[in-house]
Design a protein around this nucleic acid. Sequence first.
RNA 1: GGUCCCGUAGCCAAGUGGCUAAGGCAAUGGACUGCAACUCCGUGAUCGCCGGUUCAAAUCCGGCCGGGACCUCCA
Length: 444
Amino acid sequence: MKIFNTLSNKLEEFVPIHKGKVNMYICGPTVYNYIHIGNARPVIFFDTVRRYFEHKDYEVKFASNFTDVDDRIITKAIELEQKEIEISEKFISAFLKDVERVNSSTDYIKPKVTEYMDEIIAYIGMLIEKGYAYKVEGDVYFRVQHVKDYGVLSNRNVEDLISGSRVEINHKKENPLDFTLWKKTEVGIQFESPFGKGRPGWHTECVAMIDDIFKEEIDIHGGGSGLMFPHHENEIAQSQVLNGHKIARYWMHNGLLNIKGSKMSKSEGESILVKDLTIDANAFRLFTLSTQYRSPINFSDESLDVYSKEWDKIVRVYKQLFLKLDLEDMLEGTAKIDPDLLSIYKSFLQAMDNDFNTPNAITELQNLVKKANQLVRAKTEPNILLSALKVFNDFFDVLGLKIEIKPMEKENKEIYKLWIKARLEKDFDNADKYRNILQENGII
RNA sequence: GGUCCCGUAGCCAAGUGGCUAAGGCAAUGGACUGCAACUCCGUGAUCGCCGGUUCAAAUCCGGCCGGGACCUCCA
């Protein structure tokens, strides 16, 4: 299994630190607003990564944080005359609803900054103690020049960063690249610390959380490519000097979602919120996973329509398989694999093994649809139909797709059989009648 | 100003040194069909442009054109 590691900029064979286990951490949202569909991309993608590892029988420990202390939350709290916690709690539950809405698991470790204040303060304290950070007028900054290879992740060198800097010079800093670990604040929520009253900077929370949750270097750290610099770079810098490792063996970054040629951003309008999506979650997942995760996706209503249709097609053939097996009471039977099905299944795994190539995996799903349509019409033996159904279930499991279908009740099953019989006997009046009943009962 | 990425048929999108450049949508021809819906089979690109390296390039190198990202909060 190969993963593209942003740290080395290469495709690397995945070797877990502990055999059979994967520890992964994904940077989560700052909870000051509803998430837009661009924010949903990492949610869906890394959920799929997790599902695939689990499909391969890895034991996955998955954590993703909530940044619930941030200037934007404070600003919003003041604006709405509410407490910060009311804002953050509201958007945490909204976020989790959205995660569910896109068929992603909410069963993971969810640390919050407010619950990790002690660890964060302790982490900053250690950085100061060892000389990697310094206090100035109630602020604490990290000394970037102490990190030899600052810039490894995002492929930048310190000189370029300084010369190209558009940042306003902050005279409190020893070096313009130094970043804030603790910020003295006058407005909004404040926390007590040995450095004074204020709030932590953004870059320490993830390191402190990972340190506490996993106690060691982890396998995968993921997030959107927008986080690579400076956030992930700064995480690495802190961990490098304090823990002697770069937090994770494999760093994975997803590309952005663009709308009308430029990125969808919370700060620049033109956002489509996940909660406002009218498209089926499965179709939306297909849309998201139809582009390799590192490439940008161009959003358009047209592509959404394409995947809606695609999903409908998948549902139709799946239901046909299911009903056919149900009629013959073969849903619990023994599956018999067909060579074509086997090769589709293998190609699917191959695609996923190659840096989670979900577009190619989806192509195999389409091949499966075609094959299943042929099997359904060819009076195939039920054992083979059953294996087709099982392959579908495996693919759905990995891609996070869901079809709600239950075995028919006895009554419907009888009507279904009558329908088939009437058609065979060319008794079309009755055939139409039975078909109507089945449609009304939601069977077909 | 600095750093970096991308440009494959009408649209979406794989492939990143080597058999005839996957797949989907749309279009079009055909098959199946009691009707409706569905479904299956066939048909299209020499890979932004120019030059170079190589026995061989969409894939590597250089230049140009076009689009985008990052350097500041951002998935």
